[in-house]
Simulated scan of single mutants.
Amino acid sequence: MSVHAAPPAALGAGSPRHNNKRLAVNVLKLVAARLAGLLGTLFVASIVIFGALYLAPGSPLTFLTHGRSMSPEAIAQLEQQYHLDEPVPLQYLRWLGGVLHGDFGTSILFHESVGSLLGSHGPITLVLVVLSAILVIAFGLAVGVFAGLRPGVASSSIMAAATAVMAVPAFVAAVVLTLVFAVVLGWFPVFGTGNGGLDTVYHLILPAIALSLASVAFVGRLAQAAIRQEMKADHVQTAISRGLPYRFVIRRHVLRNAAMPVLTVAGLTIAGLIAGSVVVEQVFQLNGLGSLLVTSVQQKDFPVVQGICLVYVAAFIVLNTLIDLAYSVLDPRVPASGRKQ
């Protein structure tokens, strides 16, 4: 009587190796789909940005000739130098071809390549957004977990304060924080970015708090609601009634399941910090992309505005892609589309 050995479990359809392979395939599909979507979105955004600037009142020629008495020949030379004499579709194609080769053009206002301007102003905005994101995740989750797991007067008070903070615009928060912590108490500098390194981080703490304050409150409320909902779930109540350790149930069942919706909203909120940084940079006089964008819009510096807007759009899409990838890691059941089927 012969006995045939069963195939190893590691090679089965439900084996860890098979699950890891399926997860890797889903992630690769997601990355490929998101890259295609990124290119398509950037293409559409480039058309909208380029067209909207030319539809707006005024032109770069107004800035170039402001306060100067110039002959028609000199004006024609300026138009030829900046290709303003060409049809708008041809100008767009010329600009798009340069972008595909890494050339965003030359600033009309600063007479410097847009790429170098983005490189010199971008780090300030990046550090500001990263600091704000850390505050949103750390304090937002801490507030939400505390309020969700410990209902009572303290929890209700925290959520009431969070609701009030959510209604405060970033520029109002920036002015109030500056008045209290910079002018009255003198704990932080009023404006500027410091001398680099830790001094720059110190100068950006107050702007980061102003930028992230409403988002911290929003993520905290969402985390509290998600945890409260998971605590009422049947499988959580069953696990508690069976005598499983409370901390194990909270960590394994409540926090893990509640992390999914919180992750989505927190990621989108952090992406929104990029746009909000424009206002905060103006209030604190930070020499970042936001301040550069405002100056360029006022002076009709089209190449700089187009370059910064494209960077903002690309950053938003990349953050959304990272959120979907995190979904796939936290829950292998999530397919390449980033949503459960």
Rank of each mutant, 00 (worst) to 15 (best):
P123T: 15
P123D: 11
I124N: 10
I124H: 07
I124C: 04
T125H: 05
T125F: 10
L126E: 01
L126F: 13
V127R: 15
L128A: 08
V129Q: 01
V129P: 00
V129I: 08
V130Y: 03
L131Y: 04
L131M: 11
L131H: 03
L131F: 06
A133Y: 05
A133F: 07
I134G: 08
I134P: 00
L135P: 00
L135Y: 07
V136L: 11
V136D: 02
V136T: 14
V136K: 10
I137C: 02
A138N: 03
A138D: 02
F139A: 15
G140V: 14
L141C: 14
A142M: 12
V143M: 15
V143I: 15
V145T: 09
V145A: 14
F146R: 06
G148V: 01
G148M: 01
G148R: 02
L149N: 03
R150F: 10
R150Q: 08
P151F: 12
P151T: 11
V153M: 14
A154Q: 04
S155I: 09
S155Q: 03
S155Y: 09
S155K: 11
S156C: 08
S156R: 14
S156A: 13
S156E: 09
S157V: 11
S157L: 14
I158Y: 03
I158L: 13
M159K: 07
A160C: 07
A160I: 08
A162C: 14
A162H: 01
A162D: 01
T163S: 13
T163W: 11
T163L: 15
T163V: 12
A164T: 06
A164H: 04
A164E: 00
A164C: 05
A164G: 11
M166N: 02
A167Y: 03
A167H: 01
A167P: 00
A167L: 03
A167E: 00
V168C: 09
A170G: 02
F171N: 02
F171E: 01
V172E: 01
V172F: 14
A173G: 08
A173D: 01
A173I: 06
A174S: 13
A174C: 08
V175Y: 09
L177I: 08
L177C: 11
L179H: 05
V180N: 07
V180Q: 06
F181S: 08
A182H: 03
A182E: 03
A182R: 06
A182F: 10
V183Q: 05
V183K: 04
V183I: 13
V184F: 05
